Amino acid sequence: MNNFDWTQLINPEFYILMEFGGVKMGLLVILFIIFAETGLFAGFFLPGDSLLFLAGIYSELLTRQIAVGNEFANVVLLSALVSAAGVFGNMVGYWFGVKGGTYLYNKEDTFWFKEKYLLQSRDFFDKYGGKAIIFARFLPIFRTFAPIVAGIAAMDKKKFMFNNILGSVLWSFSMIFAGHYLSAMFLDKFGIDLKKHIEYIVIGIVLVTTLPVLWKLFKKRVHIE
């Protein structure tokens, strides 16, 4: 810990390779982060998308202690565990929205919470309805507040759970499988080890996932002006 750098907190590789007492903690940390993105409303700075893509690249390391069979089965298991963490996180966010979400509209901004994110997510939910729960999985910030807004809007529980499960499965499986098989393809066909280019991968994924959000905010500001 003497070499700890606070910038590591936004580096997904830091979480994947985390150890405690010589024990690999990467898988547990990943599951907690995915849960926390919606369950603890901390998604605006946690590296969700890039974390899952890198989890696919490091899938062999992450599943070493829980391996159930061949390579494909282990990647499926990893994706399923991440999906479950995402589902439970959204359920907590939805429950909070039902029980006390309106309180957030009067809450002062803090490092962990920004009212503008809640309002933007409400607009997103109003535009896409139940599908917003699915779409939000692929968009930073929105995936944090979409389940809360769904709870505030009293979205039907069965409809919410269907979109919640579908969105979590699509997100986790697509990101993890992409990381795993693209890494293998680049290594086999081009001799490129993606593990040595993590910083570029993270930057690329951040740009791809945040540009739609920034474009939406830009269009909204132009329209207002």
Rank of each mutant, 00 (worst) to 15 (best):
N2T: 08
N2I: 08
F4W: 14
W6P: 00
T7D: 09
T7K: 15
I10M: 03
E13L: 09
Y15C: 01
I16E: 00
M18C: 00
G21V: 04
G22M: 03
V23P: 02
V23D: 06
K24A: 04
K24F: 01
G26C: 02
L27K: 04
L28S: 10
L28R: 06
L28A: 13
V29A: 03
L31M: 14
F32E: 02
I33P: 07
I33F: 09
I34N: 05
F35S: 03
F41Y: 06
A42C: 13
G43N: 02
G43D: 03
G43L: 01
L46K: 06
L46Q: 06
P47V: 07
P47W: 11
G48S: 05
G48D: 06
S50A: 10
S50F: 02
S50Q: 02
L51G: 05
F53D: 02
L54M: 04
I57F: 01
Y58V: 02
S59L: 00
S59H: 05
E60T: 03
E60C: 00
L62K: 04
R64S: 05
Q65S: 14
I66E: 04
A67L: 01
V76M: 14
L77S: 12
L81K: 13
S83L: 10
V87P: 02
V87R: 00
G89N: 05
G89K: 05
N90K: 01
Y94N: 12
W95C: 01
K99H: 07
K99Y: 06
G100F: 05
G101W: 09
E108W: 05
E108T: 10
D109L: 09
F111P: 01
F111W: 13
K116C: 11
K116A: 13
Y117H: 15
Q120S: 13
Q120Y: 12
F125K: 09
D126S: 14
K127W: 03
Y128E: 03
F135H: 01
F135R: 01
F135G: 05
A136E: 05
F138C: 04
I141N: 06
F142D: 04
F145S: 11
A150V: 09
G151C: 10
G151K: 11
A153H: 12
A154P: 01
M155C: 04
K158V: 10
K158Y: 08
K158S: 13
K158A: 11
K159N: 13
K159D: 13
N163G: 15
N163Q: 13
N164S: 15
L166E: 05
L166N: 07
G167Q: 09
G167N: 08
S168W: 05
S172R: 11
F173L: 13
S174C: 14
M175H: 12
M175Y: 14
M175P: 08
A178E: 06
G179Y: 00
H180Y: 07
A184F: 00
F186I: 03
K189L: 10
F190E: 02
I192A: 01
I198D: 03
E199T: 14
E199A: 14
Y200E: 09
Y200R: 04
Y200K: 07
V202T: 08
I203S: 09
I205S: 02
T209N: 04
T209W: 08
T209S: 14
T210N: 11
L211I: 15
V213H: 09
L214Q: 06
L214H: 03
K216C: 02
L217G: 10
F218P: 11
K219I: 12
R221F: 14
H223A: 15
I224K: 15
E225K: 15
E225P: 04
